[in-house]
Design a protein around this nucleic acid. Structure first.
Length: 507
RNA sequence: GGCCCGUUCGUCUAGUCGGUUAGGACGCCAGGUUUUCAUCCUGGAAAUCAGGGGUUCGAUCCCCCUACGGGCUACCA
């Protein structure tokens, strides 16, 4: 493969929040670009004003930023092929659609919505659906079926019209997809797609071909939903005479819902309780809030790692990758053909792994705001210590607080199920005896405490658990947490004993 | 309906020159470590490679058909 001048683009439509699949498409483009020292470009495909959603573009940019996918050219920083928002490039498309018109590869069509509806009703024969194409185009109201005079008259009087591609008859379009190999389609099954809408803006098909050409895109890496229209795009390159510099195509498999079949959608996340969006999204119309990976406590590198392996694999047994490792290992030919069902529990596993690896200092940044929000003013060193003890058991960053709260607050209730299991005749007495001895030790550190516990349990002929479990229940309120001695030491002698006595009274 | 794409453990996948006890990971189960819960360690169950035909001494791997699943089929991307 020629790797000189690699340029790829991520081209979302700002019609709402970017979901998992979109992020993965962006990621694969990014990985591919970085691997070959190419350029990664963001192009906003906002040619449909009806579907414009305020805030969506900002959301997309912020999401990708959070993921660590930085663009070389985009709407904010510009670049040699600005503007990068298609709504700002409308003059360009007008110029190019005219070329197609002049070469008779496109034609003007006046059909109204009602007219098309009628055609769909009357021209569908049996099981065959109406298709605006070689069999029907002469029956419709367009520059092919009308005289030139009639056409110009209609235009002059202000009739609205669209411009359709004129699909050639009886040809086979063949192209090579980098993931799927050779794909062949007969032109008679293609319809005369609208290239230019009556509102003066192009449709995706025209805009993406013109822009990819103008922006010197070398590879188009996009979702499988575009595969059926790829032959049309190839035809457009041919009509423009750009076939020799046409980008190579790679159509990615879809991400499917975890249960059943079909494309993953926002609904599945709500239904099964996992986020499908990188960042939280508040719908500007309904005000509905959708969960985001960030807000739910996922680390961006874990999220990216998980996504990278959903549909691609390195051919080795490595599963944990830094971005640099992903860039080094990535290749398009190791992308799977079949769709991948999304597995939320694997996403959690990745996050768990990443949290375990994270330095305590970094985790501190996530826990500290939560402490402040809960009105806790704790010494940084102290908190760092706690994080070191609990991090191996937290799956989500948002669990950091849940797993450490008892270090900052004495329990208000005691798990009665646990009590039933561990509290025996004489437990209160043992605990009280122990508390008296513990109050005398100095220093109150792990070693000294350990020694005391050894001596105490040996002398009383009891098992360690008979002492430790009740202590834990009184100090923590349940059967959770790191080693009991670590907890006691971190709490400090005074607080520890206070909890013991208070607990004995209230349990 | 038409066109296109796909099909290896429940899930993500390895397997790319046809000969493997079909490997790994998540999840699940069991055991061990531990003062608890987790972590961690060990082990286990789990795929007649969608089905049927070929080609071949031999097919997960090559060819064909069928089934099933998915995508597309807008003046949306």
């Amino acid at each position: 493969m020629n790797t000189a001048g690699i340029r790829v683009r991520f081209a979302p439509s700002p019609t709402g929040p970017l979901h998992l699949g979109g992020v993965r498409t962006a990621l694969y483009n990014y990985l591919f670009a970085r691997k070959f020292n190419g350029s990664f470009i963001l192009r906003i495909e906002d040619t449909d004003q009806n579907r414009f959603v305020p805030g969506a573009e900002e959301y997309i940019i912020k999401s990708l930023q959070w993921c660590g996918l930085e663009f070389d050219e985009d709407v904010l920083k510009g670049g040699p092929h600005a503007p990068y928002r298609q709504s700002e490039r409308s003059v360009i498309y007008k110029e190019y659609i005219q070329i197609l018109l002049d070469k008779s590869h496109a034609y003007i069509a006046f059909d109204t919505a009602a007219g098309l509806e009628e055609a769909r009703n009357t021209l569908s024969q049996g099981h065959e659906q109406f298709q605006y194409g070689n069999k029907t185009r002469l029956l419709m109201k367009n520059s092919l079926s009308m005289t030139a005079d009639e056409v110009s008259q209609r235009i002059e009087r202000g009739d609205r019209y669209v411009i359709r591609v004129l699909i050639p008859e009886n040809q086979t379009v063949v192209f090579h997809d980098l993931i799927r190999g050779e794909v062949k389609v007969h032109t008679d099954t293609l319809d005369d797609k609208v290239l230019f809408k009556s509102d003066g803006l192009p449709t995706y098909h025209l805009a993406n071909v013109v822009d990819d050409y103008l922006m010197k895109i070398s590879h188009v890496i996009r979702g499988e939903e575009w595969l059926p229209s790829a032959p049309l795009h190839l035809l457009l390159y041919r009509f423009f005479g750009w076939e020799d510099c046409m980008p190579q195509f790679a159509h990615l498999p879809l991400i499917l819902k975890p249960d059943g079949n079909g494309k993953l959608s926002k609904r599945d996340g709500d239904r099964l309780g996992f986020p499908v969006f990188p960042l939280e999204w508040k719908d500007p119309v309904s005000n509905d809030i959708s969960h985001g990976y960030k807000e739910d406590g996922y680390l961006p590198d874990a999220f990216i790692n998980m996504l990278a392996l959903l549909g691609w694999n390195p051919g080795t047994e490595q599963e944990i990758f830094t971005m640099a490792e992903l860039i080094a290992a990535f290749s398009l030919d190791r992308i799977n053909k079949a769709g991948a069902k999304f597995d939320p529990s694997k996403a959690r596993w990745f996050n768990h792994k990443y949290i375990q690896q994270k330095p305590d200092e970094e985790l501190y940044n996530y826990l500290s705001p939560e402490l402040i929000a809960n009105g806790i003013d704790a010494d940084r060193e102290h908190v760092l210590h706690i994080i070191g003890l609990i991090k191996e058991r937290v799956e989500l960053l948002s669990d950091l607080w849940k797993h450490s709260v008892f270090f900052f607050r004495a329990p208000e209730s005691y798990d009665q199920q646990v009590k039933q299991k561990i509290w025996q005749e004489g437990t209160s007495f043992i605990v009280e005896e122990f508390a008296i001895l513990a109050s005398k030790i100095e220093p109150f550190d792990k070693e000294t405490l350990h020694q005391l516990i050894e001596e105490f349990t040996t002398a009383r002929k009891i098992k360690m658990g008979q002492l430790m479990n009740p202590l834990r229940l009184l100090a923590v309120g349940s059967n959770q947490g790191p080693g009991m001695m670590d907890i006691a030491v971190l709490l400090g002698k005074e607080e520890f004993l206070k909890r013991i006595y208070r607990g004995l009274k209230n349990i």
